[in-house]
Every structure is written in C-alpha cells, then in structure tokens.
C-alpha cells in the first residue's frame, strides 16, 4: 500500500505463520516474526503483484461458513457415491458456466472453492469469453449447477473483490 508497509495482508500472514511454527510465544520470537513480516514483503515488491483489495468483511465470513458447510456436505455425498450407497442412476458431465467475475484473485479463490468441494472440478477457464468449464460428478440436467455456482459463490466473491 505505502512505502513503509507494501503489502499489509502479506505481512500479517507471515507474522502469524512464523508464530505458529515457533512455539512457545516469547518476546524474542515475537520480535523476529515482526522483523520477517516487515522485511520479506519488500522482496515481493520486485515481482509487482497487483495489490489485493478486499471489501465486505461480513461477506467474507458468510462465504467462509457457507463453503465449510458445502465441503462437509459434498464430502459425504461423494463418499456415498463411491461406496455405492446412493440409489438411482448417476450421471457425470461437463457444465459450461458464463462467469462475470474478472478479478484474478476472485477467480483464484473460486478455483480453490470449487476444487476443494469434492464433486466439482475446475477444468478450463477461457479469459477471453469468461466461460468456465466444470466437471461435476453428480450431473443434474438444466442450469441447476450454473445457478448454484453463480448464486452461492460468484456473487459474494464479486462483492469481496470488486
């Protein structure tokens, strides 16, 4: 952001990681963590990544809770599919989703969410057309999956990464 602290979020993450790796918390480790968290981001400045701008902290918490719930639910669903506990026929297929999200960080988070949820896999994203190809283990006819991705994940992500 400014000359003294180029990437505040990165500094915060480095301090937290350093403290977690070096228990117990003493004055010395706290001091060293602050030094590392302050100096290492200056190395990042050479790479010139686009600064992350995050809005709507309430939406972040809501999205995190929703993703946690979805991950647990889809884990159980996929486990049922694998163990053959599910009744009826199951189809797999590819779904093409037109995305309005353009922020690279937003797309990265969406990729992590969709891949971390068992049952959906990010195959290809075309940055020219903004279309995403998704493979789903439990295919539903119609635009059920398109609406699920757009309503549940894309809209909050567009609020967080404007």
């Amino acid at each position: 952001m400014n000359r003294f602290l180029p990437y505040p979020l990165l500094s915060l993450a480095l301090v937290a990681t350093w403290l977690l790796l070096n228990p117990p918390l003493t004055v010395a480790t706290a001091f060293l963590s602050v030094v590392v968290g302050w100096l290492v981001p200056f190395v990042m400045r050479a790479l010139r990544p686009e600064a992350v701008r995050v809005r709507a902290p309430g939406t972040i918490l809501g999205l995190a809770g929703r993703v946690l719930g979805d991950v647990v639910r889809s884990n159980i669903d996929v486990a049922k599919v694998i163990l053959g506990l599910r009744r009826g026929t199951r189809h797999t297929g590819f779904v093409s989703i037109p995305l309005d999200l353009r922020s690279p960080y937003g797309l990265a988070v969406l990729a992590i969410i969709l891949t971390a949820t068992p049952g959906t896999l990010w195959i290809q994203y075309d940055s020219n057309t903004g279309r995403l190809l998704l493979h789903v283990l439990d295919f539903v006819e119609g635009d059920e999956w398109v609406r699920r991705v757009k309503d549940r994940y894309e809209r909050p992500l567009m609020e967080i990464f404007p």
């Binding site: 991950v71 884990n75 996929v78 599919v81 694998i82 797999t92 068992p118 959906t120 896999l121 283990l137």
Partner: peptide, 24 residues
Amino acid sequence: TGAVGLIRLRTFYERVHAPTLGAT
C-alpha cells in the same frame, strides 16, 4: 474412501474427484 474411489470409479474425470475427500 477417497482411495477406494480411485479404484472404483470408471473414467479419469470421475476419479479426479476421489482424492479430494482425503485432501479436504
């Protein structure tokens, strides 16, 4: 269960979903 899925599911694109169980 994820590793069993790696064995039981039929096509590659189905099998990719299986190890995610262990990773999440």
